[in-house]
Design a protein around this nucleic acid. Structure first.
Lengths: 140, 140
DNA sequence: ATAGGTAATGCAACAGAAGTGCATTATTTT
DNA sequence: AAAATAATGCACTTCTGTTGCATTACCTAT
């Protein structure tokens, strides 16, 4: 189990420290995207800065992708296998539930091609749907 | 000129105070979306809170729409005539230039329909393209 | 016109997230 | 084991967004 986590980090040229393995494991078990504060609350013993830089490193090495769900709080979710965060191939839709406040990935829902006016170059696209998720919908 | 501005506000049930007219006029002259800080810098004499609440009121009364361009700073742009910020009809693509940091609307580019899994309800959609705008592209 | 009520404004202060600098600890290399 | 490099933890700062409260402007009814 731990060996798999270590391999994952090493594959992305990230040294497998204890903290990084814990964060990676946590992200694996959580289906929803996690904010820095979420991590901070889960890892009582660790410093916010360390978690902040861990997420930053993970994002740079394409282990996680940053998600802006419109709440003003950046969230992070594990990338899919062989994801390189490429526009047109890797970027997918995110859903933010305004009731439970969870943000989840729809990896099957790739973002459609956006036709821009002449002279505009696209590097990145973000598509976030806000509403009510299936779990909260049932509880209504 | 001022009469038009007043009419606009009154049409949306917003009392046309001096500050509100100035903010509306400023938003009309600026093509790019404006942040609270942008307004604050432009109106040296006015308080941040007043501008904040002016924008809040404008957004509630559908005079402007809030834009989350991924920078972490909320920006505001005038709605189009007869916009009711309805999903499927009014929501359009936004573009954020990572060089000049400007965020602009593409009102002709409506956001395509997103097919969600069963049980999910969509209230709002945000689609932001990040890259290089036509002006900055020329200067390269 | 004026008194009373409502709405808008301005000041102060706070909260939360993001980020930086620096000292300390751990890890790797020689 | 010593030196170099990387990771961590603490303190502090900045920026944005927000609220409470007192004051000012505005509108309405008598």
């Amino acid at each position: 189990m731990n060996l798999d986590l270590e391999k994952t980090l090493e594959k992305h040229n990230v040294k497998p420290t204890a903290m990084r393995l814990l964060v990676l494991q946590f992200l694996l078990t959580e289906k929803a995207a996690m904010s820095l504060t979420d991590l901070e609350n889960h890892f009582d013993r660790s410093d916010r800065t360390t978690l902040f830089r861990t997420l930053k490193t993970f994002a740079e090495k394409e282990i996680v992708h940053k998600i802006d769900d419109g709440t003003g709080v950046t969230k992070y979710a594990l990338c899919e296998e062989d994801c390189h965060c490429e526009i047109e191939t890797d970027l997918h839709v995110h859903f933010h539930c305004k009731i439970c406040n969870e943000t989840i990935c729809f990896p099957e829902n790739k973002i459609p091609y956006i036709n821009l006016p002449d002279g505009f170059i696209a590097d990145d696209v973000s598509l976030t749907v806000t509403g009510i998720c299936n779990k909260c919908n049932k509880s209504l």
